[in-house]
Amino acid sequence: MRDYGPSLAAAETVAVTTSSDVVNARQVVRTLAQRGGLSLVHQTKLVTAASELGRNMLIYGGGGVVRAANVADDSRSGVYVEFQDKGPGIPDVEAAMQDGWTSGNGLGLGLSGAKRLVDEFDIESGEGGTTVRIVKWGR
Rank of each mutant, 00 (worst) to 15 (best):
R2D: 02
G5M: 06
G5R: 10
S7V: 09
L8H: 09
A9I: 14
A9F: 03
A9D: 13
A10K: 08
A11V: 06
T13N: 07
V14R: 03
A15Q: 05
V16I: 14
T18K: 10
T18A: 13
S19A: 11
S19R: 11
S20Y: 15
V22K: 05
V22D: 11
V23K: 08
N24G: 00
N24T: 13
A25D: 00
A25M: 01
R26H: 02
Q27I: 01
Q27V: 00
Q27F: 03
V28Y: 03
R30N: 10
T31R: 15
T31P: 01
Q34K: 10
Q34P: 01
R35A: 12
G36F: 01
G36V: 04
G37C: 10
L38T: 12
S39T: 14
S39D: 14
H42C: 06
H42E: 13
H42S: 11
Q43W: 07
Q43G: 13
K45Y: 04
K45M: 06
L46I: 12
L46N: 12
T48P: 05
A50T: 15
A50V: 15
S51D: 15
L53A: 09
G54L: 13
M57E: 02
M57T: 02
M57P: 00
L58Q: 04
Y60F: 14
Y60V: 00
G61S: 02
G62I: 04
G62S: 03
G64R: 06
V65G: 08
V65Y: 15
V65K: 14
V66L: 13
V66R: 03
R67P: 12
A68F: 10
A69V: 10
A69F: 00
V71K: 09
A72M: 15
A72S: 15
D73K: 07
D74K: 08
D74G: 10
R76G: 13
R76H: 15
G78C: 06
G78E: 06
V79A: 06
V79E: 05
Y80Q: 14
E82D: 08
F83T: 07
Q84G: 04
Q84E: 12
K86Q: 14
K86S: 14
G87T: 10
P88D: 11
P88E: 11
I90M: 03
I90T: 04
P91R: 11
V93D: 01
E94G: 02
E94A: 07
A95C: 00
A95M: 07
A95I: 00
A96E: 01
M97K: 00
T102W: 04
N105F: 15
G106Y: 05
L107E: 09
G108E: 05
G108S: 08
S112D: 10
S112Y: 04
S112E: 06
G113L: 12
A114C: 08
K115W: 03
K115N: 10
K115P: 02
L117C: 06
V118P: 10
D119P: 05
E120S: 13
D122E: 08
I123L: 11
S125Y: 00
S125E: 01
G126Y: 04
G126Q: 03
G126R: 01
E127K: 05
G128F: 07
G128M: 11
G129L: 12
G129F: 13
T130D: 04
T130C: 06
R133D: 03
V135S: 03
K136A: 10
W137F: 08
R139C: 04
R139W: 07
R139Y: 12
